[in-house]
Design a protein around this nucleic acid. Structure first.
Length: 696
DNA sequence: TATGGATTCTTTTTT
DNA sequence: AGAATCCATA
């Protein structure tokens, strides 16, 4: 083990403030870092990891759990940078890229790694494939139909709702009755049917050797709960660090308890004021109760804000001060003064859009590049009018959150072929592939499924199948494709080769099934390029299921190095942990933020408040909050959409508005300009496809 | 039994 | 506006 001497440790700490230093230097007793927005949370955590390594902990015995893959990569990059700075001073320390051995990733991805390695202790096949959200819904749908629950007269909950309920039971570790009563009261009458459905769901997944997101956590915990598994895994790690702890759920915290019952080597970082994932059963209690869960805990609070100017901080502090229960924190900053946050009032959304774009361009003129500016919003569709207008004006943007291209039908189609080769028992993949062949629907698909049951080579079970006329041309090619893919266990054929093979077969199907061919082909090209970085089919599929690229731009970054300057569009949820020089928040109005759905319960409303807080605290220098007085809404009471009058978000209380500047955008915008682009009849889809084609 | 069209219902955030 | 389901036709 290599230990740095005191000088080097001192230089590691030199950039930190006193509070950060205490956190970084803390021993291996349990540590809770309460880090307000912009207080250098990432820096502190990265330094703590570097400190552990520099003081002799083997990086391969450190587990770093983050919220996204992006966060993990960023953190490890910084750990390496810190340590290589040290190495630079002392070449004799020798070790290269010490961050490399750290087990970094999300709970789900690390679980997948653990289970491939040790899962057989639980009777798990290490060849398991992973169901993403839509796959799980598809499987539930198959079962729902099988079990006669899909009859519309019954008004049984839809597949997505079923999955939400199931998932909440798993992640909050509560019984179905309780979950139904508190979170889904309108589904309570179907308790028995749901119970039956979920039992079947669990059985089916086991039979098929597939795991969904929830299973990854459940099985990891089960592994840690078994005597052998617990010992095996515990003895492998000296330190466990968890970022964004306020957004973990009880299942995840119980995993932590089992990983280190006394909390030895445990560090968690979080901010109770930024807990925004309770819809995923995250509970702020995890962070509030941490000191009780691990009795020997030291709490360090980071309160010096390095991100935002004083006026922005003043506003955000006022917003969060209205929240009832929280760790008391007083964020302060010695940063320069700056412009006050701007409330943009306008008659309607289009004026808001136009005003924001004019500001975006002006900031850019003044030297803030587009990628240092972000537009944030509560729901993915809130940005659509803006996207259209950006398209019109040829302003490049990258959107985070919302539908990922990996979830598009054609991408799922393509990947299903590979999944079958990897795990022929994977019913969702098999059914998807079979029913995309002309002439084969649900019934024939189910028959074929039955025929191949228990066969190691599924095509063997289909020898006697006489394809209907519509399928005849495709069938032999299809069989040949599956066979040839199944033979390629792993590294002998590059992934892109396998994808090319699939695409040759899939092309005519794609063409007959969908329009928009050009854009879809582009997506598939992209997929092929990504695949080339993998030598191994299982890890390719796992990565795509667990941490898919979150935006088109991210794809581009990975495949080309040219960095086009792009405006960032993001849901508030996806903006967590990030910062920009200029932040524009769209639709800070009742019904959008807080969202209409959140108005039922007080807890939900508090979460909306935190969401608002998270959005505002992303801003470093300039902050704009859009409040149109009319909003074009589409919902069941107004089919086709309708302009309704709306009020400013309730979170913009008088005391908050007091420290803002209010601008009337109607006076800044030329109404004729607005008319000229709105009257041309915009087809948003073709514009977006055009943009896609141009960039990719 | 597959498939396209008509009809009825729902509508956030994501690993 | 889209998804889920139902229904008529090939």
């Amino acid at each position: 083990m290599v230990e740095a001497d005191d000088d080097h440790l001192e230089s590691l700490l030199s950039q930190l403030n006193d509070q950060q230093r205490v956190a970084v230097e803390h021993d291996l007793n349990p540590l809770l870092i309460v880090a307000g927005a912009g207080t250098g949370k990432t820096t502190t955590l990265a330094h703590r990891v570097a400190w552990l390594i520099a003081t002799g902990v083997d990086p391969r015995r450190i587990m770093l759990l983050t919220f996204t893959r992006r966060a993990a990569n960023e953190m490890l990059r910084r750990v390496e940078a810190i340590l290589s700075g040290l190495d630079h001073h002392a070449d004799r320390t020798g070790r290269k890229r010490p961050g490399r051995g750290v087990w970094g990733g999300t709970f789900h991805s690390i679980s997948a790694r653990m289970l491939r390695k040790y899962g057989n202790a639980l009777g798990l096949d290490s060849q398991f494939t992973i169901l993403d959200r839509t796959d799980s819904e598809d499987l539930l749908q198959l079962l729902r139909i099988d079990m006669n629950l899909a009859d519309s007269k019954k008004r049984f909950p839809l597949k997505g709702t079923c999955l939400d309920i199931y998932s909440r039971c798993m992640n909050s570790q509560r019984r179905l009755e309780e979950v139904l009563q508190f979170d889904f009261p309108w589904c309570a009458e179907y308790q028995d049917e749901l119970k039956g459905l979920f039992r079947a769901f669990v059985d089916r997944k086991e039979l098929q050797g597939v795991l969904d997101y929830d299973d990854l956590l459940v099985f990891w915990r089960a592994l840690l709960d078994s005597d052998t598994g617990a010992e095996m895994i515990r003895s492998q790690f000296d330190a466990v660090l968890i970022d964004e702890y306020q957004d973990t759920n009880v299942l995840q915290s119980s995993i932590l308890q089992l990983l280190s019952p006394e909390g030895q080597g445990v560090t968690v970082v979080g901010d109770d004021a930024q807990s925004i994932y309770s819809f995923r059963a995250a509970t702020v209690r995890n962070i509030l109760d941490f000191p009780q869960d691990f009795p020997n805990t030291t709490i360090v609070a980071l309160e010096q804000n390095y991100r935002s100017t004083q006026p922005i901080l003043e506003m955000t502090n006022r917003v969060i001060s209205m929240a009832p229960e929280r760790f008391e924190k007083n964020l302060w900053s010695d940063r320069e003064q700056g412009p006050r946050p701007i409330i943009v009032e306008s008659d309607n959304e289009d004026v808001q859009t136009d005003y924001l774009i004019s500001q975006i361009l002006e900031h850019r003129e003044n030297g803030v590049p587009l990628n240092r500016q972000a537009v944030l919003f509560r729901a993915s569709h809130h940005s659509l009018p803006l996207e259209i207008e950006l398209g019109h004006r040829d302003i490049p943007f990258a959107k985070y959150g919302g539908l990922k291209f990996i979830e598009t039908a054609h991408a799922k189609d393509l990947l299903s072929f590979l999944r079958i080769a990897e795990n022929p028992r994977d019913e969702v993949a098999v059914m998807r592939v079979l029913t995309m062949l002309p002439g084969i629907g649900r019934k024939k698909g189910a028959q074929l499924m039955e025929m191949s049951k228990g066969q190691s080579d599924i095509t063997a079970g289909w020898k006697d199948f006489k394809p209907p006329a519509a399928t005849r041309d495709h069938w032999p090619l299809f069989i040949a494709l599956i066979q040839s893919l199944s033979l390629k266990r792993s590294d002998d054929e590059p992934m892109s080769g396998q994808l090319k093979l699939v695409r040759r077969f899939y092309k005519p199907i794609l063409e007959s099934k969908y329009d928009n061919l050009r854009a879809r082909e582009n997506d598939l090209d992209q997929l092929e390029r990504i695949s080339d970085r993998y030598v191994n089919r299982a890890s390719f599929l796992t990565d795509l299921a667990l941490e898919p690229p979150t935006s088109m731009m991210e794809l581009k970054d990975q495949t080309q190095d040219a960095d086009e300057e792009c405006l960032v569009l993001s849901t508030i949820h996806s903006s967590k942990g990030l910062e920009w020089d200029v932040v524009y928040l769209l639709q800070a109005i009742e019904g959008c933020l807080p969202s209409e759905m959140a108005l039922r319960s007080g807890d939900d409303l508090e979460e909306e408040r935190r969401l608002f807080y998270v959005a505002l605290t992303r801003a470093k220098h300039w902050l704009y909050v859009g409040c149109p007085r009319r909003y074009f809404t589409r919902n069941n009471s107004f089919p086709g959409g309708r302009n309704v009058s709306v009020r400013k978000s309730r979170f913009l209380s008088d005391s908050v508005l007091e420290c803002c500047e209010i601008i009337n955008a109607d006076l800044e915008i030329d109404a004729d300009d607005l008319e000229s682009y709105r009257s041309t009849g915009i087809d948003s889809r073709s514009i977006r496809d055009g943009l896609k084609n141009r960039w990719l």
